[in-house]
């Protein structure tokens, strides 16, 4: 039982960095690709078109 508990907590900790990186990555992509704030949209305009994001 002790071993099980140890494995479970180790696995739980092991996934945290991956989850953090995925959230951070999707956050960055949302910012560059989707947020419609005028300044962001204008700055990222050409990239959004070229990278296949819905733009206007």
């Amino acid at each position: 039982m002790t071993t099980k508990t140890l494995n479970a907590s180790a696995a739980g900790l092991g996934f945290l960095p991956a989850v953090f990186a995925i959230v951070l990555g999707l956050g960055v992509v949302t910012l560059t690709g989707h947020v419609q704030a005028a300044a962001l949209h204008d700055a990222a305009h050409d990239v959004r078109h070229a990278t296949g994001f819905p733009c206007h």
Binding site: P17, A18, V19, F20, A21, I22, L24, G25, L26, G27, V28, V29, L31, T32, G33, A43, A44, D46, V47, A50, T51
Partner: peptide, 19 residues
């Protein structure tokens, strides 16, 4: 700006992929 935003976008993709 396009260069910076493309690098940012692909860094976002890379974060997801490496995770």
């Amino acid at each position: 700006l396009s260069i910076v935003f493309t690098m940012l976008t692909y860094t976002g993709y890379a974060l997801v992929m490496v995770a």
